[in-house]
Design a binder for these strands. Structure first.
Lengths: 246, 246
DNA sequence: CGCACACGTCGGTGGGTACCGAACGATTCA
DNA sequence: TGAATCGTTCGGTACCCACCGACGTGTGCG
């Protein structure tokens, strides 16, 4: 046969994600933070020894990066491109069709659907609203593919997000990411990450449980003003009752 | 735990690509054409019964689409997004480090590195040249993310590639695709596919063995003129000696 | 200094699955 | 109508690997 990229290499990489436990690890790590081996083991419901084995394989395969601190082993996704890969796969995978069983779970799910991080950018209903508002305000444009307009560069700089430094990154400046609750695109890429970070820095948003995000009381009017939206459009759903995991 | 996208769904999808034989099928199908079950079986070196089993799983999993014609079962990648997924995975997978053993293989590989299709768009050195030339000519622009310029829309229309109809597609108009021989981006997305098709229609390029592509004698000066390039820059490598597969 | 904790390593077990050969339907051609 | 080809179904075998429990190592705290 012609010399082609060997199927073994591709299969080996895919095999890393072909186990429910390892896949669960990667989904959990989509919150963009570093987890310890024990946290992941508990989250997946497996023995610590099993989790340790899985993490070693994921790190050797280049999907995860690890950092040892004392007796803890912190792992995180190796790269934004890994996060994109996991997101793309998860977006294509059939919906698990797991209706929430308890009130707590329902509330947590509503909170997740409203706003969450997708590795390092804003997703959920808030993410889609942000995406749409940026288009409406002319910060982004879709005429010839998703791009930032000259006026948008000024607007972003004014907000405290200089665009020039973002070009240095190896990843695309702007990119679509299909939202798996809204089934509509939201903004990813280097700019999506920078905006998410900026909102946190400004105190407009704050991290909740897991990858949940919430709009702060101060953030709601501020964001509405910046995006020329009605604050009512940014109303959150049911109460996020607070922390859960051990 | 919190209700999250179940790891089982992701793992099930990844498992489809986690087998060397199935992965090889998908890589072969990256040429964008439909293959019969028997061709794929021979190409992978497995029994027809084994291949049949694998194909059924890939179709059920939504990665492949099938079409029965008489006693033949034709399969192809279900969707451009599947091709993108496979490309992304293959690009991240470690290089198989398989130096060509025979002269035939070396020649075929050089031909592939020069020009090939990446599912439905132009890749290889020609793909990168095309990408760079489109940027240099101002058809594409990267100032705020990869996009087509207004001048570019006119240029493309003049070439016989109207841009408006391409917006109707569900996929992005323009997209970067990392070339695994050149390690540099080339143009993918709906426009990349349309350009590849147009070049074939114009007779500027022709399909070779597998996913190989070659620039025709008429195509070389025509493409050079359209892109304002020196025809010498488009010189192909060693001879492509012809068909190989049974 | 010694207990508690986090993690890694090492057999052993069980379930999942890739593979083949052989027999069987279906289609096409002579 | 018979023969060749393409594909599928069906056992059966061998192999891989996810999982656990138990034990060992290093860290941090009292």
């Amino acid at each position: 046969m012609t010399s082609r990229t060997d199927g073994h290499a591709l299969a080996g990489l895919a095999a890393l994600l072909a186990d429910p436990t390892r896949a669960g690890f990667c989904l959990a790590l989509l919150d963009g933070r570093a987890w310890t081996a024990g946290e992941l083991a508990r989250s997946a419901g497996v023995a610590p020894s099993t989790a340790s084995d899985h993490l070693t394989r994921l790190v050797r395969g280049g999907l995860l990066a690890e950092e040892r601190q004392g007796r803890h082993r912190y792992v995180r996704l190796a790269d934004p491109s890994v996060a994109q890969l996991v997101e793309d796969l998860a977006g294509r995978a059939p919906a698990p069709a797991t209706p929430p069983r308890t009130l707590r779970a329902a509330s947590a799910q509503a909170s997740l659907a409203y706003a969450r991080t997708c590795y390092d950018h804003v997703a959920g209903r808030l993410g889609v609203l942000l995406h749409d508002a940026l288009l409406a305000r002319g910060v982004l444009d879709r005429a010839g593919g998703l791009a930032v307009t000259p006026a948008g560069i000024a607007w972003l700089t004014d907000l405290g997000v200089p665009v020039e430094p973002l070009r240095a990154a190896r990843r695309p400046l702007v990119r679509d990411c299909l939202d798996w609750t809204e089934r509509r695109p939201h903004l990813a890429g280097a700019l999506g990450a920078a905006l998410c970070r900026r909102f946190l820095d400004l105190g407009w948003t704050a991290r909740g449980t897991g990858r949940a995000l919430r709009l702060t009381p101060a953030g709601r009017p501020a964001l509405a003003a910046a995006l020329a939206l009605d604050p009512a459009d940014l109303a959150p759903p049911a109460r996020d009752t607070g922390p859960a995991r051990a």
